[in-house]
Amino acid sequence: MLAIPVVIGVSIIVFSLVRLIPGDPARAMAGVNATPDFIEAIRVRHALDQPIPVQYARFVVRFLQGDLGNSIFSGRPVTTEIGERFPRTLILATIALVIATTLGVTAGIISATRRNSLFDNASMLVALVGVAAPVFWMALMLQLLFAVQLRMLPATGIGTIRHLVLPSITLGTASAALMARITRSSMLDVLRQDFITTARAKGLDERLVIYKHALKNALIPVVTVLGLQFGILLGGAVLTETVFAWPGVGRLLVDAILRRDYPVVQGTVMLLALLFVLINLVVDIIYAFLDPRIHYLSGRGE
C-alpha cells in the first residue's frame, strides 16, 4: 500500500509544477484580447488567487469526492473531459500493444531459434530502424503512403476500425521493435540454461522444448516490459494522436499544459498515475505467475 503516499507525492509535484509554468490560463484563452478584468475573473473563479496550499487542499477534498473540478478552457467537468478521451486512447494503446506483442514476440522467438539466419538478421535490422525513427516523421510517412498514395486507409479521425490502423501501427512500432529484441535475447538466455539442456537430453520434441519450457521463462522480462510499455503507450501517444487527429488523452494533456488548464492537467496526470500503479500491480501478479521458481516448486513445469 505504498502506492498511496506515492500518488500523494505525484499530486503535489504536478500541482506545483503546473503552477510554475509562466503564463496564465486567461491569456491562453483570450490571447491578445485578455483584459485585466477577464484575467482576474478567471483567477477568482478557479481560486487561482488563493495560496497554493489552500488550492491544494480544495483539490484534495474534491478529489476524494470524485470531483476533479472544471476545465478552465471549456468549463466542463474534468471527469467528463477525461471520460470521453480516455477510452479512445485506451483502445489505441491496447491495439498498439497487441500489434507490438504479436509481431515483436513472434519475431523474437523465430530470431532466437534460428540465430544468425537471414530472418534473424533482417528482423533485427527492422527492429533497430523501428526504434530509431522519430515517431511523428514515421506517422507522416505512413499517412502519405497508405492514405494518399495507396488510398487504403483514412488519414485522420475516428469512427471505424480502419481509422485505428495507421495510428496504432505508428504507436506500436517502437514497442514491437523493443519486444522483438528483448524476446530474442531473453530466449537466447533461457535456451542456454540447464533445464533446457536437460529437457533436450530427455529427448523431448524440440518444439515442445521451445514453446512449453523455454518460452514461458523467456517471457518474464517481456512481461515486465509489457507493463511498462503500456504506460508509455498510453501517455506517449501525444505525437501520434496529433498527426492522426486522434482525440485521445495524450493530446488533451499536452493541450491542457499549453493552455495552462490546471484542473485538466492535474486530473489527467492523477488518472495516469493511478493507472500506472494498477499496471505495476498486474505486472507483479503476472510476474509471479510466470516465475519459474514457483513452477518448479509446484512441479507444474515438468
Binding site: 499517412q143 494518399v148 488519414a155 485522420t156 479521425g157 496529433t242 498527426v243 492522426f244 487527429a245 493530446r251
Partner: peptide, 18 residues
Amino acid sequence: FNFIPEESARIVALETGE
C-alpha cells in the same frame, strides 16, 4: 466540422475526400 491540428494531415484529408 472536423478538427485536424496538423497542417499536412488537413491537406491529406482534403485530397482523400475525407
